[in-house]
């Protein structure tokens, strides 16, 4: 490239860059991405892909989808998930079956890597967009995900 061609190209590309940032400057009022957090607490909606904490959704008759396969426990790289399970007699079939007693999740140890959610074959756990997770004692960060008295939804294991 010739000497003057270099200068021309240099100036042109610099002006292109400046026009891009200039456009951002002029539209920044409308497009400001800053959330003024404590002020807009009521209206603030977190993004769908935000990883707040792991939750286990329950339907209206208190049934979850967790079969107690422990794949999430194995997938977790730092042991944030502990599953306490038991073999109980299924009242419908009369056979012994693996059922969860407590799905324990240590939020304080969780790195939000999401491997447990990818590992779950029945979509029993998913991300919540809740972000106000601070508590006064770390023991509150240990959570039991399945609600008391809940049981696995019928037909999930098939």
């Amino acid at each position: 490239m010739s000497y003057f061609g270099n200068i021309y190209r240099g100036i042109k590309t610099l002006l292109t860059g400046m026009s891009v940032t200039g456009k951002y400057f002029l539209t920044s009022r409308k497009g400001a991405i800053t959330q003024q957090y404590p002020d807009n607490r009521d209206t603030l909606k977190m993004f769908d892909r935000f990883r707040g904490e792991v939750v286990m959704p329950h339907d209206e008759v208190n049934e979850h989808r967790c079969t107690g396969c422990q794949k999430c426990e194995i997938a977790c790289p730092n042991g944030s998930i502990e599953i306490i399970w038991d073999r109980q007699v299924d009242p419908e079939t009369g056979k012994k079956k693996k059922m969860i007693d407590q799905h324990i999740y240590h939020l304080g140890m969780c790195t939000m890597c999401g491997l447990c959610i990818e590992a779950c074959p029945t979509d029993a756990i998913k991300w919540a967009q809740n972000f106000e997770n601070s508590v006064y004692d770390r023991s509150y960060l240990t959570k039991v995900l399945n609600k008391p008295g809940s049981k696995v939804k019928a037909g999930i294991e098939d």
């Binding site: 940032t21 951002y24 400057f25 920044s28 400001a32 991405i33």
Partner: peptide, 10 residues
Amino acid sequence: KVAAWFQLRI
């Protein structure tokens, strides 16, 4: 302020 406006901040 100008820096914030260029970067879509407040």
